[in-house]
């Protein structure tokens, strides 16, 4: 793949959001350094990377992403950005666009190639389990508004799962 700026071999790949559309960006190392997409030393400073990646590459769309909320654990992307910790396993899916470039920056990869649990993991089923947990907690806490929302979400997911 060629660098979009100078035509040499591209080694830095970033996913960015442009007007709500996912866009791939491919650059060679010097061009990427020039655009400050990667730092010259390999120091890993997560908050700084987060600020950098999110601040620079998502631009106007940052607000939209920052406000986005995980329907399962309720964390907002901007909270993750501030704390550096995700709220639940579903966040990898729902913040995918923000996380992709972050993961690439940290690991120079976005794809797992290691150990796989022997008994394959149907993630959808666990999302449902997680929703049920939240629902039970909401009912216990008498948060009926939240409970109704979760019940709808749960119905949707379960219906979707059966039709697969």
């Amino acid at each position: 793949m060629k660098c979009e700026a100078c035509g040499q071999l591209a080694t830095v790949h970033q996913t960015t959001l442009v007007e709500g559309q996912k866009r791939e960006l491919h650059l060679c190392r010097p061009c990427a350094e020039e655009r400050r997409l990667i730092q010259t030393n390999n120091e890993l400073n997560l908050p700084a990377i987060l600020q950098h990646v999110i601040g620079q590459h998502l631009g106007p769309e940052m607000d939209e992403l920052a406000r986005q909320r995980c329907p399962i654990c309720g964390i907002r992307f901007m909270e993750f950005r501030a704390q550096g910790r995700l709220g639940c396993s579903n966040d990898y899916e729902c913040f995918r666009i923000g996380l992709d470039s972050l993961l690439y920056r940290i690991h120079r990869s976005t794809r797992h190639t290691g150990k796989v649990p022997r008994q394959g993991v149907p993630t959808v089923v666990f999302e449902v389990a997680l929703l049920r947990q939240r629902l039970r907690a909401a009912v216990e806490a008498e948060e009926y508004h939240e409970a109704a929302r979760l019940r709808d979400l749960l119905r949707q997911r379960e219906a979707g799962h059966e039709s697969e």
Binding site: G84, Y92, R111, H112, G114, K115, V116, P117, V121
Partner: peptide
Amino acid sequence: EARVSYAFSDEFGYLTACPTNVGT
């Protein structure tokens, strides 16, 4: 692993609270 259900995705591997640990 035989007794609990781990948070795992084919794409990102073992899912962790901090993205610096995800994968293996």
